[in-house]
Design a binder for these strands. Structure first.
Lengths: 169, 169
DNA sequence: TTGACATAGTTAGCTGGCTAACTATAATGA
DNA sequence: TCATTATAGTTAGCCAGCTAACTATGTCAA
């Protein structure tokens, strides 16, 4: 996400703003700070999951399956929800199946679709990971009270509303 | 960073919280929302840079060099500041040098060190990219006023303070 | 002074994403 | 009805990170 470790100091920003009058130093600073913190959180999540021999990609697949009443779904739906390509999902399922955490079932009406189901071992793995993840996360976010969290949500909405403007041609 | 597109609804969170009492639903929700928005911002940044034929990694190297009075630095220092391994930095510099945006100079005191310098073409590239980047970013963050940005900073500090607790053994 | 250790840059090979192209199956419309 | 088009899953190959190992150079203490 944001690899950069050496965020610009106010002085550096000022220097750049002098050459580039378009620069809005507090906007830049907020943007980079947000990316920096989010990246650190993501790394922390990876660290937590790695203790259980998992990576984010596979872990999300397990969670998406657990959300389903039937504990199953199809690769293309999973790909959409997980935000990866179908090709990547094939690889994720391959790995999870090799570890016995999910299984492919070829039994559907439409023979283009296959079903991917969380196995008992997959559920057991989640029952081991999730309490650890949740309690660490609770600690991590404990600095922010309910009001602060509400505030954060609102700000994030405001920011995300600006993304189209950033992308447009 | 966060690939997941299908963030949990309050109902899903409630269901998980029932099975896993450690869950703090508002903490989880804030955490995921933060990662989701940051990821969207990072993708928007990539989109902006790609219009100029750049990727984040190389672009940050150019910026780090421009920050220096001498427009130059060494690969290992750049690697540290850019938050990538020295091996990766070798590759980034290779690419930038091939495009004529930086040059390697072998002239230092300590012959283990080499110097990497921003070329005129590199500076010209930045003069083309930065105004675009800055004005897009300004638009993107325009939903948040100065007070909001201050608030955001404070909250991010509170969150980042919790990261060690999330990582610790 | 020289042997052990540390540091800088590079190379080789791994990984988890990606796109594009392929196969098989289903749906649709002339 | 059958040719076209769309969809699902997979495969092949690309890319930008990574670690580990290697070479060359510098440092330091016995």
């Amino acid at each position: 996400m944001l690899q950069l470790r050496d965020l610009p100091t106010p002085e550096v920003l000022e220097k750049f703003a002098q050459r580039y009058p378009e620069a809005d130093v507090s906007a830049i600073s907020s943007f980079l700070h947000l990316l920096r913190v989010a990246t650190d959180l993501s790394i922390a999540l990876d660290t937590c999951l790695s203790r259980h021999g998992l990576l984010q990609g596979r872990w999300w697949v397990l969670i998406l399956l657990m959300r389903e009443e039937t504990l199953s779904s199809t690769p293309s739906v999973l790909a959409q929800k997980a935000g990866v390509s179908r090709a990547t999902m094939t690889g994720l399922i391959d790995g999870l199946e090799r570890d016995g955490l999910v299984e492919r079932l070829y039994a559907g009406e439409d023979r283009r679709n296959i079903s991917v189901r969380l196995t008992a071992a997959g559920q057991a793995k989640l029952d081991q990971v999730m309490p650890d993840y949740y309690s660490r996360l609770k600690q991590c976010m404990s600095g922010l009270d309910e009001t602060g969290r509400q505030h954060l949500h609102e700000m994030l909405h405001l920011i995300v509303a600006g993304v189209p403007a950033m992308i447009q041609a």
